[in-house]
Write a protein that binds this DNA or RNA. Structure first.
Lengths: 188, 188, 188, 188
DNA sequence: GATGAATGAGTATTCATTCAT
DNA sequence: AATGAATGAATACTCATTCAT
């Protein structure tokens, strides 16, 4: 097993990809990413067989990270609303503190290269958040709507809020509060 | 590189671009678009100096079209809620009936090639809808939030709803209704 | 039809390919060929869609040329033996005077890239020579063998003879004479 | 880069190379060969310093094997013609029973990578067969031709015959017989 | 104005070979 | 000695854009 594959190098490539994609979009070249990661051109392909595989790995990793950030403080046994607020805060905080990661994730979501399997994996990572959301939905005005649709509305609301916070950080607190209030009115 | 004569050809190129981008994504080549439009390779550049200019023109045109579809029946003097519902119906109907155009618009929104000027023009086309939205917002629970943010929340809600209708047309009526109800709870 | 495809350029590419393949073998790169032809890298692909297409075109062209060189003086109404001798002389002369072309043809014959259709076309070009050979075979000791097999034996004899002439030109006349004599003993 | 220990591994690599080259041609990669041999990528280079050295070793080995197969039964003290027939049978049998080995040898013969030294070694392996051929030539119609040229004609005849047997095995016996008869007419 | 040939920089991936483990 | 990760040069083909006809 001489000279095992280096997890550090693998991570370096993923991090480099985030930086390069954030700067250049999904048309970023593998050469640029390898250079940014400090590895040789061809080494990238020891860690990811194709560019598409790198894209998919990145997608799942970022989506999982995002999901985790909103699920972190979720063990509370307070009210559903309190729990949802905490999730909201975690999500928004992650996006605002890691704008590159969030931007890349947004780009990848729209890419044709992301496979159904990767999307399923990303979906899976969001399960805890979806369960919490269920508690909120089931007794509120959206009790007739499907859980998936309600989740999509939450995501849409969160992303729109995050966009405003990033574009206009001076009013971050307001957007954060108003966005959550709007979400809660939707489903609570 | 004199001024183009034929508006027909210009339109043919734009329509062809919609078809090709819908099928291949933003990596569609100018050659493929020219071929689909039935014009020569180089002729495309008589009408659009660069690929980016074609992208921007398309963005503004589609955004304007979308805005128009929701503003069409807006002259009603009924209640704000009724007017908003009509706008909602127009918007959703356009997206569902022209899924290629809507898909291309979604792709272009995320593209780095779209300039600030184009985004401003697109924004301008949405003015009538935003005015209507203002009537709704000003007296409701979001009266403290900025109009732009509320508009973004409406857009996010509409787009999420449209996604579900397109993916699951059997339940289109439910999503349409529930989506609007959620929107109205947000701001009404 | 502005600026029609130039036959000169096409031929320049084919000639360049001959030179480069003769020097470097079938691993010659399209870039090297384009450079030798004095055209841009990408222009090669205006004339030949793929490298394989260039290879096939070259194969058919060289094979046809070789066949023509042996069929040239074939209209004689002398004996079959005389006619065959003339064909032999034409063939050997072509190969010896155009050693690069002959070498490239030899390389291409063994290539996996040459399609069945190209081989058929090459075969077709040899038809006149095969007809002449038939006259010789039908009444000689090989009258029971298939025409194709006899043709292959002739080709094998000719190519072996040519190899020796090229390697040892001082004794060219001897190889030429002895080779033909051997061939005639085989089938006459 | 010390001396290799295991002759087994060396042979495994050579055998694997035959299989892979037969399937993929001379563009077969060292990685593919190593994998087929069940050794690591880099280990191949312990046994063969370069790819070219592997090619050359293979060439000499296969040529020697082929020569041996035709020389096997050569101790007969029958007539020259009988001895030549036996050699012919041995040669053809080897080629027909080991089509991969023969194909690879044919490919290697045309390769630029094979050095003059290797060709000389291959030539040396054919010495017994050439000696036998001498006995046939010296008293026949080719007594004026050089031994080397006559040997080349024999090789050409044999290879053409083998091609037909492999392509059309149903008539193998006919080709075998007619091919030898033609050869014998040439020189006997 | 229209055409499509010409251009050459750019891209993902492969591969022989080296070298750290 | 064996392994397989690391390297970076090499390659066929694409594409936005220009320009001769």
């Amino acid at each position: 097993v001489a000279r095992p594959r280096s997890n550090d190098k693998r991570q370096a490539i993923l991090e480099a990809a985030i930086g390069v994609i954030a700067a250049q979009g999904l048309s970023a070249s593998t050469a640029a990413i390898a250079k940014a990661a400090g590895v040789a051109n061809g080494s990238l392909f020891t860690y990811f067989e194709t560019k598409a595989e790198l894209w998919n790995t990145l997608y799942v990793e970022l989506k999982t990270e995002m999901a985790a950030s909103s699920a972190e403080a979720l063990t509370t046994d307070g009210s559903a609303k309190d729990a949802l607020l905490q999730a909201w805060e975690g999500w928004v905080t992650w996006a605002v503190e890691m704008p590159e990661r969030r931007k890349v994730l947004q780009l990848l979501v729209t890419s044709d290269e992301i496979t159904a399997a990767s999307r399923r994996a990303g979906h899976g990572a969001m399960a805890p958040l979806r369960q919490l959301l269920e508690r909120c939905r089931a007794q509120g005005p959206m009790r007739e709507a499907t859980p998936g649709f309600v989740a999509a509305l939450m995501t849409a609301t969160a992303e729109a809020t995050i966009d405003f916070i990033i574009d206009d950080p001076a009013n971050a607190a307001g957007y954060r509060r108003d966005g959550f209030a709007a979400l809660w009115r939707m489903l609570g």
